[in-house]
Design a protein around this nucleic acid. Structure first.
Ligand SMILES: [Zn+2]
Length: 258
DNA sequence: CGGCTTTGACCTGCGC
DNA sequence: GCGCAGGTCAAAGCCG
């Protein structure tokens, strides 16, 4: 194989937090909107705070096969191997998804492939092509439900640069985050953080109807706008979308990509 | 000829 | 101690 294009390792925090969920039975749309606005303001504040000062404090949320890294250590900044594990959900071309190839801009050397228990698709194990100087590893596996989605798990950080940053479309869909959203909505954020695509997938890999795309400078504003619009249309959908947006935002924040 | 994928074997942690 | 499941090794082979 050969490389060619590159992209940014859009790492994502491993945390999906149950922000919404508990109470939402009888609530006026207006009140809901106010609540969400407040929530958004809170998150914005948190974002600013985190962006202002470096705070590497992440929520150690375990997905399914949590690594044996306790990560409970703090202040110990010695020569810790930094077991940072980032999970990235990304869309891929059908051909790439079939071959478990995730274009992230780095050169990888495949060293194994196994079938896992709960996922019918095999999991591919990659190591960074820059032999042991760069100890980064990644596992790529197709999503069980959405066959066009690749779930990559990065471990470690690269110690070198890559060539070009290509557009890695990282996705967050409600199908993977808790019971709060069963609607098939999703949000995709370009790896450069320039554009945001809100989508409504139709249970399958092909039905990806783009709802809107916005530029980054108006990120928050448009996000709130979108929330309002969708709220007017369908509050349930909005809730799902909010969940997705929040998760994705937390991921972005965690990795300080902006 | 060199680097990389392929693929089954091997290793290891963990639960019973 | 055994078996399972996930992770890695390494021999063989493919391809430029
Ligand atoms: Zn690397």
């Amino acid at each position: 194989m050969d490389d060619g294009e590159c992209s940014s390792p859009t790492g994502s925090g491993a945390g999906l937090l149950p922000l919404f969920g508990p109470s939402t039975p009888p609530e006026s749309l207006e009140e809901k909107l106010r609540r969400l606005s407040a929530e958004n303001r809170r998150l914005t504040g948190a974002l600013d705070a985190i962006l202002a000062g470096d705070r590497p404090q992440l929520r150690p949320l375990a997905t399914s096969p949590a690594p044996s890294n306790a990560a409970a250590m703090d202040a110990g900044v010695t020569a810790e191997p930094r077991p940072r594990v980032r999970t990235v959900h990304a869309r891929a071309e059908p051909a790439d998804a079939e071959a478990n190839i995730l274009k992230d801009g780095y050169q990888w050397r495949k060293y194994g492939q196994k079938v896992t228990r709960d996922n019918p698709y095999p999991r591919a194990y990659f190591r960074c092509a820059y032999a042991p100087s760069c100890p980064v590893k990644k596992k790529v596996q197709r999503s069980a439900e959405d066959k066009s989605m690749l779930v990559a798990q990065y471990e470690g950080e690269h110690n070198h640069a890559q060539c070009v940053q290509s557009e890695l479309v990282s996705d967050a869909s409600t199908s993977q985050q808790g019971p709060s959203g069963s609607l098939p909505c999703s949000i995709s954020i370009n790896s450069l953080g320039r554009t945001i695509t809100l989508g409504l997938t139709n249970q399958g890999s092909d039905g990806h109807a783009v709802v809107g795309e916005v530029a980054a400078p108006e990120f928050r504003k448009v996000m709130v706008d979108e929330m309002v619009t969708l709220l007017k249309n369908d509050s349930e959908f909005m809730e799902s979308l909010t969940s997705a947006v929040t998760a994705r935002m937390m991921e972005k924040i965690s990795n300080r990509i902006f």
